[in-house]
Amino acid sequence: MNDLIRAWEHIETWLREHQCTSALSKLHPPASQEAIRSLQDAISYPLHPHLVQWLGIHGGAPMYDAPIWPGGYVPYDVEALKGGPEYMEEMLDEFNEQRDEDPETWILDPWADPLWLPIAGTHTGESLLIDHRPGDTYGNIIEIDYEDNEVTAVRWKSLGEMIRLMAESLESGSPMPCSPQYSLVPQLDEGPPSYLNWRLEKIQD
């Protein structure tokens, strides 16, 4: 059993022990091998193995209906994932158009790349992506937040690391790192129904 699967089992155990199953209950069952093959056929590059492992646990969730990941992110289902490359193409065209309008003062990093695949989103429009570019960035989890000064920022080295840190944070009650300046602190709202919140907290110097 790999670390990602083991870590997610710890997360589900914690959520059930704390009667915090509202979002958990809305996750889809494991994606079938046929569905995963169909997804791979729709993507022009090999899917990162952590994404394949995740889909073997839960095949996503109804859009914006199960904020199960830190930051209120809902993991996309297979059909939504298939639209990722087209969405990236549209976002890259938008970026290039805006940069071309004022190239002398443009300072923002690109908010799209043909090898970035969106894997989760929030109801306020933020996205998590997996970087499929070869090299040191391969597998990185990138956040796109149009309201943030960074717009794009690497949050975790991989999906496996994100889920592992989530499990460790829930079990220990300690903050979950998400940037050099901020961490996410798990908070249980006992409701009813009970649900999990992640409070953004500045890391003290």
Rank of each mutant, 00 (worst) to 15 (best):
M1F: 07
D3F: 02
D3K: 08
D3V: 06
I5Q: 14
A7G: 02
H10A: 09
T13Y: 00
R16W: 02
C20G: 05
C20I: 05
A23V: 03
L24P: 03
S25N: 11
K26Y: 03
P30I: 03
P30G: 05
S32K: 02
S32A: 05
Q33W: 00
Q33K: 12
I36W: 09
S38D: 15
L39A: 00
Q40I: 07
Q40S: 14
A42Y: 06
Y45L: 15
P46G: 09
P46W: 08
P49C: 11
L51K: 10
V52T: 15
Q53D: 15
I57M: 13
H58T: 04
A61H: 08
A66R: 02
P67N: 07
P70R: 01
P70C: 01
P75W: 02
Y76V: 01
V78T: 14
V78S: 12
E79W: 10
K82Q: 15
P85D: 13
P85A: 14
P85R: 13
Y87M: 15
E89L: 09
M91N: 09
L92R: 15
Q98L: 14
T105D: 13
T105W: 09
W106M: 13
L108A: 10
D113G: 09
I119N: 07
I119W: 06
I119Q: 11
A120G: 09
A120P: 01
H123Y: 12
E126G: 04
S127L: 14
I130T: 13
I130S: 13
R133T: 11
G135F: 11
G135A: 11
G139A: 08
I141C: 06
N149S: 09
N149D: 10
E150K: 12
R155E: 10
S158N: 10
E161S: 05
L165P: 00
A167V: 10
A167T: 11
E168F: 08
S172F: 05
S172G: 05
S174R: 15
P175V: 04
M176C: 12
P180C: 02
Q181V: 08
L184P: 00
P186T: 02
P186Q: 03
L188M: 14
G191A: 13
P193V: 07
S194M: 04
Y195P: 01
L196F: 09
D205C: 06
